[in-house]
Design a binder for these strands. Structure first.
Length: 155
DNA sequence: GCCAACGTTGGC
DNA sequence: GCCAACGTTGGC
């Protein structure tokens, strides 16, 4: 299988790349959007690399890289009535929501702001820049490579 | 905190 | 199955 690349958004005040570094790996709970779910369930495979994006922060941007460490399985937070992510329409016999586990790979020495990505012609077709609200999304290989180079401080 | 974009729900 | 109302995301 050819390498696949993805981008996943998280609000750093909820879960940041530093949290992932500390934890080593984590289940990507709380996705409640069908397209994002389908991407995790049907697209993501163990070993795929993921751009870790910090949203709803100043500035928003790509913070580092993670890797899929476990393929899709039911999001248990949807079953837990006491949980913020509870969804009464999901249950263990017929799970509606899925998640993958991701593991920490690297934190960039600097965050790459969204605005900087917008200014790069080679990235003009990135899903991130055209589908604002999609929280789990595909990234093309050349986009991934370029962003990683930027993040590591190269040009 | 505002609000535009847009995904989801539910009445019909 | 359309589409208006509603709710959420997420940049600013």
């Amino acid at each position: 299988m050819e390498d696949q690349f993805w981008l996943m958004k998280s609000e750093p005040r909820v879960y940041s790349i530093d949290d992932l570094e500390e934890d080593g790996s984590a289940p990507w709970t709380g996705v409640r959007n069908y397209e994002a779910r389908n991407t995790m369930r049907d697209g993501m495979r163990k070993g795929d690399r993921v751009l870790f994006y910090h949203s709803s922060t100043t500035p928003p941007g790509v913070a580092g890289v993670a890797r899929v460490s476990r393929e899709a399985y039911p999001d248990f937070t949807a079953f837990d009535e006491s949980h913020d992510y509870f969804d009464p329409k999901s249950n263990p016999d017929a799970p509606r929501w899925y998640m993958v586990d991701v593991e920490f790979v690297e934190k960039f020495p600097r965050l790459i702001p969204l605005q900087e990505l917008r200014d790069i012609p080679e990235l003009s077709e990135m899903v991130l820049l055209n589908r604002m609200r999609l929280s789990v999304q595909p990234v093309r290989a050349h986009e991934f490579d370029l962003i990683v180079k930027l993040g590591r401080g190269g040009g």
